[in-house]
Simulated scan of single mutants.
Amino acid sequence: MQLSFNKKKSSAIRDSKGDRIFSYFNAVIMTLISLACLYPIWYVLMASFSSTAAINANLGKLLWPQDFSLGAYQMTLKHPLILSGFRNIFLILVFSLPLQMTMTVLCGYFMAAKNVMFKNAIVSFFMFTMFFSGGLIPMYINQRDLGLYNNLWALIIPGALSLFNAIICKSSIDVIPDSLTESAHMDGAGDFRILTQIIVPVIKPTLAVLLLYYGVGLWNNWFNAAIFIQDNDLLPIQNILRGVLLANNQSLNQGTQSADVVNQFAETIKYAAISISTIPILCIYPFLQKYFVKGIMIGSVKG
């Protein structure tokens, strides 16, 4: 029996009136939430290009710079420790990120491995460190006794591994079919080759997200440097900008600017410092955004 097929295009399924109302309502709500999140960033950016007098005179919304000027950025960047702060944070990123990613992948691969002797006991020990720690004083004494006090390595070595990120990496590895690694073992590949040539390329989106997590964490971290770093020349940029925010008039008046010039940008210097510390991360995110959703969701559902 020969079947005949209708070549006409089937009409698209139309949404009901209730579905359309919900979609419009949802779009309006999400737009308002997005504006509420974006406007503070826009306000800080516009205020950084304004003068203190204009900001004080305009206490309402700020959509465009008032009395446009680059004076706040010029004075902030003239701070003698700004360049050393950027140098230190870039050194921390250069040494920390490869170390953190390597440790995370190795730990995730171990936790995802099967038929490993004493695996449960070792993983339980790992998990114990997530919930309990010695505290700040033992950590300080440990850093001092290891010779890491007042050294950039104090900001690199202790944070070499985040177990939470290793668990994310482990969940991503669990999604990979066992047949893929088993066939590689049968062909004579060792664990190192399987990890570097099979697993790492497959979980690349997850690694991109973890790289973003680690990078943002290192960039925003100022507390450890405030505890373990004594010399101002070794402080990362966040600690320098924090000093600018707390005492901008005194810290920026280095004798090269008159008091009137400093006072002219006393308020907007704070906004310039916030912009300098935020914009680099905002510029990096678009390059990793395509991996973000895929990487954070991989491993959440198996099947």
Score class of each variant (00 low, 15 high):
K9D: 13
A12V: 13
D15G: 11
S16Y: 06
K17P: 08
I21V: 13
Y24F: 05
F25N: 10
N26E: 09
V28C: 05
V28G: 11
L32E: 11
L38K: 02
Y39A: 03
Y39K: 04
P40V: 06
I41E: 00
W42Q: 13
W42I: 02
Y43H: 12
L45R: 03
L45F: 13
A47Q: 09
S48I: 02
S50I: 02
S50N: 02
S51L: 05
N56Q: 15
A57W: 09
N58L: 13
Q66T: 14
A72Q: 00
Y73P: 01
L77A: 07
K78R: 12
H79P: 03
L83N: 09
G85K: 06
I92E: 09
I92L: 14
V94T: 05
L97Y: 06
M101T: 14
C107T: 15
A112V: 09
N115A: 07
N115I: 00
I122M: 07
F125P: 03
F126H: 04
F126M: 00
F132A: 09
L136E: 10
L136Q: 09
I141V: 13
L146S: 01
L146H: 04
L148E: 05
L155I: 02
L161Y: 00
L163C: 15
I167M: 05
S171N: 13
I173E: 01
I176W: 04
D178Y: 12
S179K: 11
T181D: 11
G188A: 03
R193W: 06
L195S: 01
T196E: 05
P201C: 15
I203K: 00
A208P: 03
L210Q: 03
G215Y: 00
G215C: 10
N220M: 04
N221T: 10
A225E: 01
N232G: 14
D233W: 15
L234M: 06
P236F: 04
L241P: 06
R242M: 06
G243Q: 11
L245V: 14
S251I: 01
L252R: 01
L252M: 12
G255R: 02
Q257R: 05
Q257F: 12
S258Q: 08
A259H: 01
V262R: 04
N263I: 01
S275V: 15
S277A: 12
T278R: 10
L282C: 08
I284D: 05
F287P: 05
F287V: 08
L288M: 07
Q289R: 09
V293M: 04
V293A: 12
K294W: 02
G295E: 00
G299C: 08
G303Y: 08
G303N: 00
